[in-house]
């Protein structure tokens, strides 16, 4: 019989769940700000947030090590204060995964929020709802499918995370050896082609489900946006008439 590394699959899913749960609320808030507010340095902020998407993950991992490592400027302070070592731990795997998948989720959330007609938010305020009530009652539900889509994408990206994890969290069996790392490790050992293949199959399967779900939410969103309650959705607000 083959010995399948269920532990790696389980660990991967755990990292992915933690990542999505941490990244989602953050992305909702930042995505809303990016979609609705104009401020100085917005382009720079967006660029920095999106950097991990284009940067080699190993670079991201290295930078994380510099920041959160025991000698890093946050890591050192944290270690001296609490004795917690972030690097090469399960938490590190989650941090690496959050940073790498954040651009995906933020992009998706931002686009979803931008698709919500700002005029509906204005209408909500004219009916007595505060900005927070408007956000909860109007913006969030209308952007929800897009937000869920982003969540699924981030989940999938985090399952595939390799470079930043191995650099920042290491390849510790049972703690940071996620599915991709397990595949990589198996590949290094001759005669484990079958085990490798099974893990690869799992990886492909999970990714496929995630992408299909994400597409499903996106279509649902589009359908909803198409049946807006406005008479002419294209009739934008002319500020001065």
């Amino acid at each position: 019989m083959y010995s399948i590394d269920y532990n790696a699959i389980w660990l991967s899913l755990k990292v992915a769940v933690y990542t999505s749960v941490i990244a989602l609320p953050l992305a909702v808030v930042i995505g809303y700000i990016l979609a609705r507010k104009e401020f100085k340095g917005k382009i720079l902020l967006e660029a920095i947030l999106h950097l991990p998407m284009v940067m080699p993950p190993v670079t991201t991992g290295y930078l994380l090590l510099i920041v959160f490592g025991v000698n890093g400027f946050i890591g050192k302070w944290l270690f001296e204060l609490t004795g917690i070592k972030l690097a090469f731990s399960f938490a590190a795997a989650v941090i690496a995964s959050v940073v790498v998948s954040f651009p995906l989720i933020i992009r998706s959330v931002k686009v979803a929020m931008e698709m919500v007609d700002a005029n509906l938010e204005e209408a909500s305020k004219s009916l007595g709802a505060s900005p927070v009530q408007t956000f909860i009652n109007i913006t969030l539900p209308l952007a929800w499918p897009g937000i869920l889509g982003g969540f699924v994408l981030a989940f999938a990206r985090s399952l595939g995370e390799f470079g930043a994890t191995i650099t920042f969290a290491g390849n510790i069996a049972g703690e940071t050896r996620t599915l991709p790392l397990a595949i990589y490790s198996k590949m290094q050992v001759p005669g484990q082609e079958s085990e490798t293949f099974i893990l690869v199959a799992f990886s492909v399967g999970i990714s496929l489900v995630a992408i299909v779900l994400s597409e499903y939410f996106y279509r649902k969103k589009k359908k909803q946006a198409g049946s807006s309650g406005t008479i002419k959705s294209s009739l934008k607000k002319y500020p001065f008439k």
């Binding site: 509906l120 309650g229 406005t230 008479i231 002419k232 959705s233």
Partner: peptide, 8 residues
């Protein structure tokens, strides 16, 4: 002018 009913 465009009603702006909440579609959801």
């Amino acid at each position: 002018q465009d009603g702006r009913l909440f579609p959801h």
